[in-house]
Design a binder for these strands. Structure first.
Lengths: 339, 339
DNA sequence: TTGAAAGCGCTACCAA
DNA sequence: TTGGTAGCGCTTTCAA
C-alpha cells in the first residue's frame, strides 16, 4: 500500500491534520509552527508520500476534471477535421488550467442521465446535444455546470451555449451556388441530426435562403440520409437529380466526393458539393472542398474556459454565444454544366 | 444533494447493502429476495438514484480510468499526424472497453512521480518516456500497470514496451537517399529527444546505416536542434551544407519544408527531406513528405489493450513489442542536383 | 435472506 | 499553535 497521510503524521509525531494543513494548506483557522512544518515536509519526502487524489476529490466533492460528452463519436481526422479542431480548442484551455479532461466511452454509449452527477466531474462540456426530453431533464437536474456546443439560442435548458450563425452560413452557401447558376440544390444531412436543434436551424436556414433567392423548394430539397453510399447513388439516379448539394458536415461531403469518384460522377462538373465546418481537412480532399466555416477551435476553447470559470465561481450563468459563419470557396463548386 | 444509497434504502425499508447488492450485485455471499429486489429497483428509479462513482472508486480502489502521460504535448494535427493517429488508436481500444481516458495537463507540466499512484488511474499509458532516474523510479514504485510507447527493448523498467524497429527505419531512409546519389546526409532531431532511449536508438541506427553504406560520417552528421527556424538557416549557410536531411519527426520535417520556402530553398531540388512516422499528414504537405513509417495507431491500440488486460488480470507482464518500420517515398526526396 | 459495523484517505469543523 | 472527531458514499466482512 502507498504511504498515507497517517503514516506521515505518525512518523513525524504529529496529527494527520497537521500534515494535511502543511502540504495543502487550505484551512485558514489552523496554523502549524515553522519547525513542525519543516519536519512534516521532510518526513513526507522521505516516505515518498503522495496524496491520494481520489480520497481528496471524494472528501472535497471536487475532482478537477471536466467530462466531455458526445452523442456521436467518429475517428479523429478521418473524414473530417471536426474532432481535431474541437480537441485542440479544449486542450488549449485545459492545459493552461488546473483541470484534467476525461473522455468517457460510457458517456457515448449510454444515456448521459446519471453520469452527469456521478461525482466524477466538476463540469460537463456537452457536444452535439440532442435535446431529447431525457437530456433536457438530465441538464435541468445537474448539480454541476454544463456548457453546450452547437446549441442554438432559441430553446433548450438554460446553460451557456456556443453556436455558429447557421442561417448566415446556409445563406452564404445558397447565394454562392445561385450565383454560379445552380437551381437544383439539395441540403443533405444525417437522419440522426434531424432531431437536433442545430439540425432544425440549418434546415430552416436553408429553406429561408432558398426562398429568399427564389429557388424552387420541394419536399425533396432536404434529404435525410442514413446510408450515405446508397442514398447518394439513389439521389443521383433519380429524376430530381440536383446540380449542387450542401451537406451538414465535412464527413457527408467527403463521402459524396468518394462515392462520386466510384460512380464516375465528376465534382464539380456534374455536381457541386459544399461542406460544413471548413477545417484544414478541406484542403486535403480531392477536389479541395468548398465549405461553410465555423470557428470550431475557438468555440471549443471559449466553451471550455467559460465552463472552468463557472466551476470556479460556483455558478451556472446562462448565455448564448453566437459565432459568425464564413464561406470558403475551394474547388468542389463550379457553375453547373449546361444540359 | 443527490440521492444516496441510504435514501433509497430508507425509502424502500431495507438496508443500504441490500440496495448495493441489487443494483451492482457484486458480493456472492449476500442475496436479496426477488420481491425486495423489485421494490428496491422501483424506489431507486423513483428517486432518480444514480450511484456516486467517485465513492465507489474510492472504496473499491478502482476507477475504470486510464491516464495518458506525455513528456511533450503539441497541437493535434497541426504540424504532424502523430497525436491524431495515437489518439485514434487509444480511443478505438477504450471505446470498446469499460475504461475512460483522462488526459491530464498536470501530468505534462509536472513530474509524473506521485501522479501515477494518486489513485485516479487503474493504469498508465506512458507516451514518449524520457527514462530519467526519476521516471524510472516512479515506474519501479508503481502500484498500477504501466505500458510504454516508443520505448526500445534494451533498457528501462520492465513494463510492456511498444516500439518500432528504429534501426530498420533509419536504414531504409539512408539506403533510399544513397541510392538517389546523396552523400551529404544529416540526421536532425530535437535536442530534447537526445536523452530518450528511442533518440539514442535512432542516432545509432542512423550511424550504423551510414557506415554500412560507406557514407562519410562526421561530428556534424547528427544535429540537435532547439530552434528549428534558426538552426535550419544556420545549417544551410554552413560549409557542411547537406543535400539531404532525415528528421526525427514529421514536425521537424514540416518546419524544414516551411522554412525552406521562406528562404527560397527548393525541396527536393536543393535538399531532400525525410520525415519520421508517415501519417496521413504527409499527404498534405507541399511537397508531400517522404517518410519512414511506423504503425502508430496500431501500436497505440495494442498498447491500450495490453494495458487494459493487465489491469483486468491484476498483473504487469513485461514484454517488448516490436513493430517493423516501412518507408513511403513521396515528393520531398530526389537525386541531389549536380553542383 | 438480511443487516450492522467498519473503514477506504482525506479534510471541515470544532475544541483545547 | 495544535489535535480530535466525524463523515463524504459506498462496499467488504462478519454476524444474525
Amino acid at each position: 500500500m502507498a504511504t498515507t497521510i497517517r503514516d506521515v503524521a505518525e512518523a513525524a509525531g504529529v496529527s494527520a491534520m497537521a500534515v494535511s494543513k502543511v502540504l495543502h494548506g487550505k484551512g485558514d483557522n489552523v496554523r502549524v509552527g515553522v519547525e513542525t512544518a519543516e519536519t512534516i515536509r521532510r518526513v513526507a519526502q522521505e516516505l515518498q508520500y503522495h496524496p491520494n487524489r481520489l480520497a481528496r476529490s471524494f472528501r472535497q466533492q471536487k475532482t478537477q476534471t471536466i467530462g466531455v460528452v458526445f452523442s456521436q463519436f467518429g475517428r479523429i481526422g478521418e473524414l473530417d477535421g471536426y474532432f481535431t479542431a474541437f480537441l485542440n480548442g479544449v486542450l488549449s484551455a485545459t492545459l493552461q488550467s488546473e483541470y484534467g479532461l476525461t473522455i468517457c466511452p460510457n458517456l457515448v454509449k449510454s444515456s448521459v442521465n446519471g453520469v452527469i452527477n456521478d461525482g466524477r466531474f466538476d463540469g460537463i462540456l456537452w457536444c452535439k446535444p440532442d435535446y431529447s426530453d431525457l437530456s433536457a431533464q438530465a441538464i435541468e437536474r445537474s448539480e454541476i455546470p454544463i456548457v453546450m456546443m452547437h446549441a442554438p439560442d432559441a430553446e433548450g435548458p438554460k446553460v451557456p451555449r456556443f453556436c455558429c450563425d447557421n442561417p448566415l452560413g446556409l445563406r452564404l452557401a445558397v447565394e454562392h451556388l445561385v450565383e454560379l447558376g445552380h437551381q437544383q440544390i439539395v441540403f443533405v444531412m444525417d437522419a440522426a441530426n434531424q432531431s437536433t436543434s442545430e439540425g432544425q436551424e440549418r434546415i430552416s436556414g436553408f429553406e429561408t435562403a432558398m426562398i429568399a433567392r427564389g429557388v424552387t423548394l420541394t419536399d425533396e430539397s432536404v434529404r435525410y440520409w442514413t446510408n450515405p453510399t446508397e442514398d447518394f447513388a439513389q439521389l443521383m439516379s433519380s429524376k430530381a437529380k440536383p446540380t449542387a448539394a450542401i451537406t451538414y458536415s465535412e464527413r457527408l461531403a467527403v463521402s459524396i466526393l468518394r462515392q462520386s469518384e466510384a460512380l464516375g460522377i465528376r465534382v464539380p462538373e456534374d455536381i457541386s458539393v459544399v461542406g460544413f465546418d471548413s477545417t484544414t481537412y478541406c484542403e486535403t480532399t480531392r477536389p479541395r472542398l468548398t465549405a461553410i466555416s465555423q470557428p470550431i477551435e475557438q468555440m471549443a476553447f471559449d466553451a471550455t474556459n467559460i465552463l472552468i470559470s463557472n466551476i470556479d465561481a460556483d455558478q451556472s450563468a446562462s448565455r448564448a454565444f453566437l459565432y459568425p459563419c464564413g464561406f470558403d470557396v475551394r474547388e468542389s463548386t463550379a457553375a453547373p454544366r449546361f444540359r
